[in-house]
């Protein structure tokens, strides 16, 4: 795989920005200034970035409740994201959606989603549009191991195969659907293998390895762009935090939580590979780290200072016209 140095640094920057964004929210959530439910993406950054950096604005993604990383990787404005999380008028969705419904259709983001698995049929619809209108675009749905058991996810895969749509179903198996282990709720314990029965290429990759994801997704993307139909990718990922912020994670041992941060941190792994492969220096990566911290700090302060929506605008956008 011939990724140029600047592409690799950009990948690292996006992953680092997501990590900083999420860690910042984790810290700030204790202040009570961020309303509502929060589901953090820490630990899974390689997946969103390795996928989305191969897409452009004509391609669509549909995300899930754990959606901040997907949106940032796909190019959503960082400050607009932060303002939305704080419920502010100048947020990406004018404070109407918040964390779980954050979207930026101009960047091909069909939104995070509060309904588990809903992104799969929605993205399949985007793939139908792409095929029907001949836009050349593809669509990707991000969903977890939990969503892999939803009926409408199966239904969407079948239709994507039926109609040979430019669609990629990307399952991030982080081991837990909410509080429940995938080894309990996935009967066959094999998401990719089960999906293959629908009649499409389905592979499993290490979701902590940026390069492995990049390559596997690149293959699926090539097929989709060439009109050769949909694919499934199951990435074995890790979730650093709980299902939502505030989840005490009694179902996971302290050893497990420490171990994933120590041994399965995709950001750490990419950093080591870049340095070892002489693709980047420690100083270059440190600079990116510092810039990510400064960017997120600035966005946070802007979000705190920004104005809330005017309650008089409550009904806006319920309809186009009424």
């Amino acid at each position: 795989m011939a990724l140029k140095k600047e592409e690799l640094l950009e990948a690292y920057r996006r992953m680092r920005t997501i990590r900083e964004f999420e860690e910042n929210i984790h810290r700030e959530n204790t202040t009570g200034e961020i309303p509502g439910f929060l589901h953090l993406y820490c630990g899974q950054e390689a997946n969103a970035v390795a996928v989305c950096m191969q897409l452009d604005d004509t391609d669509y993604i549909a995300s899930n409740h754990r959606g901040h990383g997907h949106c940032l990787a796909k190019g959503a404005d960082v400050k607009g994201m932060m303002l939305e999380l704080y419920g502010k008028e100048d947020g990406l969705c004018h404070g109407r959606g918040g964390s779980m419904h954050i979207a930026d259709v101009s960047r091909g983001i069909l939104g995070a989603n509060g309904i588990v698995g809903a992104g799969a049929p929605l993205a399949t619809g985007a793939a139908l549009t792409a095929k029907t209108l001949g836009t050349g675009g593809v669509a990707v749905s991000f969903q977890g191991d939990g969503a892999s058991n939803e009926g409408y996810v199966f239904e969407a895969i079948n239709m994507a195969v039926m109609w040979q749509l430019p669609m990629i179903f990307y399952f991030e198996n982080n081991g837990y659907g909410e509080f429940t282990g995938h080894d309990y709720v996935v009967g066959s314990k094999d998401i990719a293998g089960r999906a293959a029965a629908f009649g499409l290429p389905a592979v499993r990759v290490d979701g902590t390895d940026f390069f492995e994801v990049y390559e596997a997704f690149g293959e699926a993307l090539k097929r989709a762009r060439a009109g050769k139909g949909p694919s499934v990718i199951e990435a074995q990922a890790v979730r650093f935090y709980g299902h939502f912020e505030g989840d005490p994670q009694a179902y996971r041992s302290t050893e497990e939580l420490e171990s994933v941060r120590e041994h399965k941190d995709c950001l750490k792994i990419l950093r080591q590979k870049l340095i070892k492969g002489k693709k980047a220096t420690t100083a270059e990566l440190d600079t990116i780290d510092q810039e990510a911290v400064e960017l997120i700090n600035a966005c946070r302060e802007a979000a705190k200072a920004a104005a809330f929506p005017d309650p008089a605008t409550l009904m806006n956008n319920t309809y186009v016209s009424y």
Binding site: P35, G36, L314, M315
Partner: peptide
């Protein structure tokens, strides 16, 4: 009102 439940606190309170 006849609109979805908004996220932002001042809107939700309204």
């Amino acid at each position: 009102p006849h609109c979805p439940t908004p996220f932002s606190p001042p809107l939700e309170q309204a």
